[in-house]
Design a protein around this nucleic acid. Structure first.
Lengths: 235, 235
DNA sequence: CGTATGCTTGAGACGTATCAAGTTCGGTGG
DNA sequence: CCACCGAACTTGATACGTCTCAAGCATACG
């Protein structure tokens, strides 16, 4: 099979309708199909690296991706996730600055690359597309400012509870009520902004409080409302 | 003097050229002038409140404004500042969600209100304006994701050093090398994400390290490079 | 089956929050 | 102009949470 055969078409992309591309017409989608390319990544593979200039945007066809920054002495901070239908790398395009985060596959993922030229053309030609991107960046800011507040003010345990809820929103639950993504304890720590050991102890606490259950590597949510209350510190 | 007389005109606004409105033509500016209104605020007065739906954007003619969110048990978290030429309130417009932060004047400030209609019209009619706003929101995200990382990973002292540098960038230094904005210790604590007492002690430490000097309420920066090094934990 | 990697537990040190005084500052009314 | 009052600031003592380091344990994989 050639790569061409593997490359998904925008018109038939299952993620398109919930994406920023939902308002584009057939002609515009064909143009993207012509210019884009698609890459497949294994778990752990890097899609793009912080500090490099972006040459286009990436659209996640399917899979799970983390976006992280290098902080203090090389410690990773996970700042966002992306799944099917999400686009990544656009902030760097728009600000004309180097990429501010590294994108890494958490799972087998298929990611399309759309050149800068097409991206900016869509912004110029299609005000609705522009507005979609603006909506996206505005929501990003709102999420980010909430995160800043929480990082600054909440205890580690509250942040952990919040991150579990965030993971649930992003990746959903499987048939067994377990969060449907596999992250190492270290990666969870890198979301929460704490040490791996703290995550382990605090997950133990949450388990004792019957808010979650631990089944192997999987985290089962037993009491979502309880987690919400804890995360908001109604405590 | 009627308020009309007081209302500054966009065409002669000293802040316009460094603002997102720099690419608009005379006709477009006149349209804004017709529809906008201008309010004057004293130190401490609230321009808009978190949770309310925005009905337009605000453009700072002059003055100093803090944007903050309510976190844990009512504790304020300062997430951004705005000065002459900056616009605020647009994220809420774009995401069609309630305002995510409260804007408060730190000083006598003049702020123009531009109705949503005009804002969206400019986005539709003027791709360059669209791109300016996109650039702005993208930069916001990059700042925010850095802040998230720093809040999660840096020590309080490092964050304080970083915030002092941030204040310097935003408000500049006066003729005496003092940060040109008056914030209470509590407000500084609400930027750093710590207690007022910690800020006081740590400012004392920075003073002992000869990185800053304290002259009354004013903070004088003695060794900017030293602060940069400290903030980055080259320590 | 052995080795590497990730996970877990424990003990100790450190940083920061909290609470409880004082002190200084800035504005107001006598 | 001074005295007063409240708010902001400062300092100290203590407690708690979290990080770090060190060791042991489970798990995955060749």
């Amino acid at each position: 099979m050639s790569e061409k055969t593997n490359t998904p078409k925008c018109a038939t992309c299952g993620s398109r309708n919930k994406s920023v591309f939902c308002s584009l017409n057939t002609e515009q989608l064909t143009q993207i199909d012509t210019d884009k390319s698609c890459e497949f990544y294994q778990k752990g593979e890097v899609i793009f690296k912080e500090g490099v200039m972006a040459r286009g945007i990436f659209c996640v066809n399917n899979g799970k991706i983390k976006l992280s920054r290098m902080g203090q002495s090389g410690k990773e901070q996970i700042v966002r996730f992306a799944t099917g239908g999400d686009i990544i790398g656009y902030n760097s395009m728009l600000s004309k600055k180097p990429l501010s985060a590294t994108a890494t596959a958490l799972d087998k993922s298929a990611v399309c690359f759309i050149p800068a030229k097409n991206f900016f053309q869509m912004i110029r030609d299609e005000p609705n597309f522009s507005l979609k991107i603006l909506e996206l960046t505005a929501k990003n800011w709102e999420n980010a400012s909430r995160l800043i507040t929480d990082m600054a003010q909440k205890t580690t345990k509250q942040r952990l509870a919040e991150m579990l809820l965030w993971l649930k929103e992003t990746f959903g639950l499987d048939e067994d009520n377990c969060i449907d993504v596999q992250l190492s304890r270290e990666e969870i720590a890198n979301m929460v902004g704490t040490a791996t050991e703290a995550v382990i102890r605090l997950l133990g606490d949450l388990k004792k409080q019957k808010l979650i259950a631990l089944e192997g590597k999987k985290i089962k949510l037993l009491d979502i409302h309880g987690l919400v209350v804890l995360a908001d510190l109604v405590d």
